[in-house]
Structure formats: structure tokens, C-alpha cells
């Protein structure tokens, strides 16, 4: 554990709390992609199957349980409690374009041909693109509530912080995980456009609006 990873994880936790806060206080999941949230549940469930097989630390176990539970809770909020506020007609990204290639990539790049390793690898690739339906929706509507942009910023910061974490681990432990690093760089790259608008508009007190 190093500070980059720790603050990355904290940022990830923060993003989830911000999202739950947004949905429950506005009593609406408007502007949130159900598809992205469903992908996160898939990511956490397929990756954290090792909860039953390998113990890393109490921190690790608690975080894994939290990520699975909170992502399922968010789906519940969107699908049951605030269902009328969820508009599927603008959440139109085709999931098969994401899941299909991730299955193929996991079959090619993995650390072992067994179900746990294949699912782990799949979850890493899937996480790297899981935000796309959300970003696509943002692009389509051209604007976002400020709280939603804070959610995305916290999620992007979590990914960004994992990069110095890997650099640090390389020098301090000689540890390199090529699958995580490659997928992580792609994932962080997807946020660059968003961050540009976030820094130049939202943090200057303006509304998040994309140029027409």
C-alpha cells in the first residue's frame, strides 16, 4: 500500500458516495447511465470472486465487499426506487460492443487459464471501458448536473492515482502487472476530454456544457 493507491481507493469510495448522494437528494437518477452502473456490478462480481479463495488484508476484504454491495444498491435505486426518473431512451450505447471484445481480450491476455484468472482479466478489461455508456450519454445530452460531474471527476481521479501507484510499485517492489497497467492507461485516457471541460468550466463555477 502506498499513498497513491490509498488516495485512489478513497477517491473511488468518494465517487460512490457522491453518486448515491446525488440520486437520493435529488430523488432522481437523471443523467446517470444504468448501463455503466450495471457494468460496474459485473466488474466487481467477476473480479472479487477471490474473496472466497485468497485473503489479502482486512482493508482489501472490506473494500471488495463495499464495492459489490454499493454497486448493487445503486442498481436497486435506479431500477426500483427511482425507476420513473431513469430514461433508457438516451442510454443507448450497445453493450455487446464492449462485453464481446473484453471476453476475447481476456481469453488472449491473462495470468492463467482457470475461471478465476479469466474472470479477473475480463473484469480488468471491462472496467477500462465501463464508463463509455455514461460518457456517451453525456455527449448526447451535451450537459450534466454539477453533482454528476463531481462523481465522474472522483472516479477519474481514482484511475489517475493508480498510475503513480504502479510507477511507485515498480521502483519499490519491482512489481509490474502489464494487464492492469495497459487497461488502466486506456481507462484513464477516456477521461481526458471530460477532465478538460471539468477543469475549464465546472471548477470555474460554470455549468458543464459541451460545445454544440
Amino acid at each position: 500500500m502506498n499513498i497513491f493507491r490509498f488516495f485512489g481507493d478513497l477517491s473511488h469510495l468518494a465517487s460512490i458516495f457522491i453518486l448515491i448522494h446525488k440520486i437520493t437528494t435529488t430523488r432522481s437518477c437523471r443523467g446517470i447511465s444504468f448501463k455503466t452502473q450495471a457494468l460496474y456490478v459485473t466488474v466487481f462480481v467477476t473480479r472479487y470472486l477471490d474473496l472466497f479463495t485468497s485473503y489479502v488484508s482486512l482493508y482489501n476484504t472490506v473494500m471488495k465487499i463495499f464495492f459489490i454491495a454499493s454497486s448493487c444498491y445503486i442498481l436497486y435505486l435506479m431500477r426500483v426506487r427511482y425507476r420513473p426518473t431513469n430514461d433508457p431512451s438516451i442510454d443507448t450505447f450497445r453493450l455487446e460492443y464492449l462485453v464481446g471484445p473484453c471476453v476475447v481480450l481476456a481469453l488472449i491476455f491473462n495470468y492463467g487459464y482457470n475461471p478465476t484468472e479469466l474472470l479477473w482479466s475480463f473484469s480488468i478489461f471491462l472496467e477500462s471501458v465501463a464508463i463509455l455508456p455514461q460518457l456517451f450519454m453525456l455527449q448526447r445530452t451535451g450537459e450534466a448536473e454539477t453533482i454528476t460531474t463531481h462523481y465522474l471527476a472522483a472516479l477519474g481521479a481514482y484511475r489517475a492515482l493508480y498510475i503513480p501507484n504502479w510507477i511507485y510499485r515498480y521502483f519499490s517492489e519491482g512489481y509490474v502487472d502489464p494487464i492492469s497497467v495497459t487497461a488502466g492507461l486506456v481507462q484513464t485516457g477516456l477521461y481526458l476530454d471530460f477532465f478538460y471541460v471539468y477543469f475549464t468550466k465546472v471548477l470555474q463555477g460554470q455549468k458543464f456544457e459541451l460545445p454544440a
Binding site: 481507493d9 477471490d50 502487472d177
Partner: peptide, 10 residues
């Protein structure tokens, strides 16, 4: 290999 020690990152 990363998986020998398990995947310790979240």
C-alpha cells in the same frame, strides 16, 4: 507473475 501472489489491488 502478478497472479502468483494473488491480485492485491482493488
Amino acid at each position: 507473475r502478478p497472479s502468483d501472489s494473488g491480485h492485491d489491488e482493488l
